[in-house]
């Protein structure tokens, strides 16, 4: 139970944090059409997160207090014994209880950095959701099947932007390369097996993310080749997101995202 819950949160937190970051572009896109495109994409991710958080909350509500306190240290969430909701999972956990990959919490900075983030993540999620479509857990399999269609479009969109910027003007090429080089080192925990990953793999619920690396690497290399960009050579990677060790960026995201629910609990509008 506890490993399943952690596993679901790994997936859900990735979707929520990425979706939230992309939603920051709403009203700020370089052109109206891309503003709408990114907002659509943000909503796809937040939709994925919602399905998973509902499932996570159902499991949370079945835990006893010792199990809850063993898994979480967020006081606001632990007030709940059996009435936790998807909102409680999203808005009442502190940063150390979040399990998203570091890459996704990094700032959007500019268009090139945002595209770099999407590109590295979308190429991963297509592989991940393909594998999880065959999960022994019916809910995870259903979410994965639905998300796979969305992820395929996201990947097409971000691949095309990488090619467009890489093979564009000298300035767009240079800035795309810089963004890729900078965010490359944060891709480590996408492919790192956590304890939850290992347990879920044993039960055929999860998949071996480390085994997806080779395919991801060759998919990315092919696009970068077309984009006349250089595959970052640095093999050293940051990691820690799955264990709740985050960059300072996550705190800022949560402060903005959670403020309203924590200040005015159950507020609706």
């Amino acid at each position: 139970m506890k490993f399943l819950l952690n596993y679901i949160l790994q997936l859900a937190d990735n979707a929520l944090i990425h979706g939230h970051r992309l939603s920051e572009w709403c009203g700020h896109g370089p052109v109206l059409e891309q503003d709408i495109a990114l907002t659509n994409t943000a909503l796809d991710h937040i939709g994925q997160a919602r399905s998973l958080y509902q499932y996570a909350a159902d499991i949370y509500n079945q835990l006893d207090s010792a199990e809850r306190e063993n898994l979480f240290t967020s006081a606001a969430l632990l007030q709940f014994r059996d009435q936790a909701t998807e909102d409680a999972m999203a808005y009442l956990r502190d940063s150390w209880d979040f399990k998203n990959a570091l890459l996704l919490e990094l700032p959007n900075k500019d268009w090139a950095y945002t595209i770099a983030k999407c590109f590295l993540y979308d190429n991963f999620t297509v592989l991940l959701y393909s594998a999880l479509s065959g999960s022994a857990d019916a809910t995870i399999a259903a979410v994965a099947k639905k998300s796979l269609k969305e992820a395929s479009y996201h990947r097409k969109w971000s691949n095309e932007w990488v090619i467009r910027l890489g093979d564009g003007t000298p300035e767009s090429h240079e800035r795309m390369q810089q963004a890729l080089d900078d965010y490359w080192t944060y891709t480590g925990d996408l492919f790192k097996l956590s304890e939850a990953d290992r347990k879920m793999l044993e039960q055929h619920i999860g998949t071996d993310v480390s085994a997806l690396y080779a395919q991801w690497h060759s998919d990315i290399a092919a696009i970068l080749n077309t984009a006349t960009l250089t595959l970052p050579a640095n093999e050293w990677r940051q990691e820690g997101g799955k264990d709740g060790r985050h960059t300072e960026s996550l705190g800022y995201i949560l402060a903005e995202m959670q403020y309203l629910q924590r200040t005015y609990p159950n507020a609706q509008w």
Partner: peptide, 10 residues
């Protein structure tokens, strides 16, 4: 290509 993608999104 971008026009078709934008049309899909808009």
């Amino acid at each position: 290509a971008m026009a078709i993608e934008n049309a899909r999104d808009v």
